[in-house]
Write a protein that binds this DNA or RNA. Sequence first.
DNA 1: ATATCGATTATCT
DNA 2: GATAATCGATATG
Length: 210
Amino acid sequence: MMAPASPLDRAFFARRPRRVARELLGKVLVRREHGGPILAARIVEVEAYLGEQDPAAHAAAGKTLRNAVLFGPPGHAYVYFIYGSHYCLNVSCEPEGRAGCVLFRAAEPLSGVERMAQFRGIELQGPQDWRKLTSGPGRLCQAFAITRARDNGCDLTSPASSLWIGDDGFSPRGIVLTPRIGIVKATDQPLRYLLHGNRFVSGLKRPSKL
DNA sequence: ATATCGATTATCT
DNA sequence: GATAATCGATATG
């Protein structure tokens, strides 16, 4: 069962993206739905984006309508739409005015699994199928019913929000750094953080190689 | 088990 | 008009 989680405060996010990314591993993403079950999943893979000086970041070209949340206060959700069908979730980092952020790439379901399957439009045959729920940034958003219209700008530090991030005391071990994936610029820097051997990490169908 | 490919649309230049 | 921080299907060894 899930231990009670306490929200992360604003100061947690008001730091550089690398630090926030590393420390977000093991934390819990929580979705409260009106009249639905609580959805919760432990964060097992994230990527840091460094803001305006990072060629791969959405903030690289400066502030636009789309990425405005990144330039606002830390701890808020930046949700964008990509490839005509997927949403991806980020959290704004650094003090207001600086556009660093962290992308949520994968999580391990803790509760509300059947509801997640519903949102994903799949039927679960067994625990091995849980991987299809939240392994990948697009899947994770679909499992949590995250959209830009609903969640962009949401305060992720407040349990009053429908979407927020909590700490349930879990201490992750075996943090691995790799280059970011799915991008073409700045692929040399190791800015992807994941939990060693965790089966919910995205990418390979079977994470045999970690 | 790994590689390649097409879908689909908000956003920006 | 071009692009894209993905996914799922198909092909191939």
